[in-house]
Computed example of a mutant assay.
Amino acid sequence: MTEDEYLLDQAIDVYLSGLKGLEAFISEPSAEFALSFEQYLILRSITKQPGIKLMDIARQRKVTRSAVSRQLKVLLGNGYVTQKRDPADRRRQALVVTPAGKTVEQRITANVKKRFKKWVAIYGSERGQMLLDLLADFNKQILQNNPGSNKESKQND
């Protein structure tokens, strides 16, 4: 077996045993409120940036407007967010968090922070930083430079 084949086998093992479960692990705090982690992150953006527009969120997250719109439907449907027409341009609508949305965002954020703190306590902040640096570098060098992966990620958002 060549070194490349060995690395591929290891990558597959890591994916099957760890990375597949990572999203479920990350999403757990928001699932209690029938939200995906992506929806929570959008709710958090609206909470931290009152009056933000859908287009602003799409630009910040580097996804399409329709991707944000699909996620936003759930937040609107749950009564966590409302839309308010811009008096200067009636076609534009600002996103506003409701009191229920603010409570949900605060509770999920508290759970995320508690979970992250446990993760750092087990893994260590130095190793955690090394892992995050490695993942950021992998994202920049491999994922962001792969034209096919950007297209796929926008479709999946």
Rank of each mutant, 00 (worst) to 15 (best):
E3T: 12
E3Y: 12
Y6G: 00
I12H: 06
I12Q: 09
D13F: 09
L19A: 08
K20T: 13
F25T: 06
L35Q: 05
L35M: 09
S36Y: 00
F37S: 12
Q39C: 02
Y40T: 00
K48H: 09
K48C: 05
Q49N: 15
Q49Y: 10
L54M: 09
M55Q: 11
A58N: 04
Q60S: 10
K62H: 10
K62Q: 11
T64C: 04
T64Q: 06
R70G: 00
Q71D: 08
L76V: 11
G79E: 05
P87W: 02
A88K: 11
D89R: 10
Q93L: 06
Q93Y: 13
Q93C: 07
L95K: 08
L95A: 06
T98M: 05
Q106R: 14
I108N: 06
R115T: 15
W119I: 09
W119R: 07
R127S: 07
Q129M: 12
L131D: 06
L132T: 04
D133Q: 09
L135C: 02
F138V: 08
N139A: 07
Q141C: 01
L143G: 02
Q144C: 12
N146R: 08
N146D: 14
N146E: 11
P147S: 06
G148K: 11
K151M: 08
Q155A: 12
N156L: 14
D157M: 12
D157Y: 14
